[in-house]
Simulated assay, not measured.
Amino acid sequence: MLEQFFHPQTFREDAIFLSTPHIIILAIFFSSVILLYLNRNKQCISSVRWILLLIIILSEISLHIWSLATGQWSIQNYLPLHLSNLSIYLCAYMLWRNSYKVFEVLYFFGIGGVMQALLTPDLFYTFPHYRFFHFFLAHMAVILGILYMVWVKKYTVTIKSAIKSYAVINVIAFFVFWVNQLIGSNYMFLAEKPSGPSLLDYLGPFPWYIFQLQLIAAGVYLILYLPFYFKNRKAW
């Protein structure tokens, strides 16, 4: 059973979108979000920060060990250049250092991008494969880590934070686009759409969907900023 848990050819599916394991893991995730919010003012909640950091560190170390041990690792697939991977690394630093500077940038594309990954996973391993657990635990930890900073540390964002985050992600995307052209990869899905079901299926062909994503990202940023906007207005 342990060999099957790690073997790259076991528990494979064409897509796990809205499969029973996917629905169950989403239910666990949203329950975790609710529990974090309900316990946000309890003294013991501070330990959650370190638990989430440990999950992120172990998940990324184990991923590279697994990919190397099974011959899966390649420069086209395992550089930390997907939006989710970038969010994972930034979240680890944010949790470790209690970094507000990272938080105000990560809040927008971390929640927006990682939430999309959770809802429409580009994953072809189902329960109970190692990659299934790695994918969902790491992505869940990022969003919970960001929400921890909002609800427990009381961090907030401003419209300047949104502009800064939007500029940062576009600079990163510009760099990643040319990396894709250079090494034949598809990081951030800037070379082609993902194989599994995703929001990009409803957008135009390459390269037009990249420009459409700019507009969608702006809308997501606005939605994510609104709770802080109304909170600040109420404080006035």
Rank of each mutant, 00 (worst) to 15 (best):
S198Q: 11
G110E: 03
V142S: 04
F124Q: 10
S161K: 04
L182M: 14
D122A: 06
S165A: 15
K160C: 12
V142P: 01
L190T: 07
A162D: 06
S161R: 03
Y89L: 15
G196I: 02
V152Y: 02
Q116W: 10
L144N: 01
Y125V: 02
V157H: 02
L118Y: 04
Y130V: 05
L95D: 02
P128R: 07
L144D: 02
V157R: 04
L123R: 05
G113Q: 00
W96Q: 06
T120H: 09
K154Q: 15
G196T: 14
L119C: 11
V105A: 04
W178A: 09
L144W: 03
E104C: 05
N98V: 12
Y166D: 09
E104R: 07
G110P: 07
Y100M: 08
I143Y: 04
E192T: 15
R97D: 14
N180K: 10
F174R: 09
D122I: 00
L90N: 06
I172K: 03
L95T: 00
P194G: 10
T158G: 13
D122Q: 08
A167K: 11
Y130C: 07
M149N: 07
I183V: 12
V176K: 00
I163V: 15
Y130P: 01
L123I: 09
G196S: 12
S195N: 14
L182Q: 10
T126Q: 08
K101D: 14
P128C: 08
A138S: 09
F189L: 09
P128Q: 03
A138Q: 01
F109G: 04
E192M: 14
W178R: 13
W96R: 08
Y100E: 11
E104N: 11
K193Q: 08
Y107G: 01
N170A: 10
F133I: 07
P128F: 09
F135W: 04
V150F: 08
V150W: 03
A138T: 01
A117F: 08
Y107Q: 02
V179W: 04
F177K: 12
M94F: 03
P194N: 12
F177Y: 15
V168R: 01
L95W: 04
V150K: 03
H129N: 10
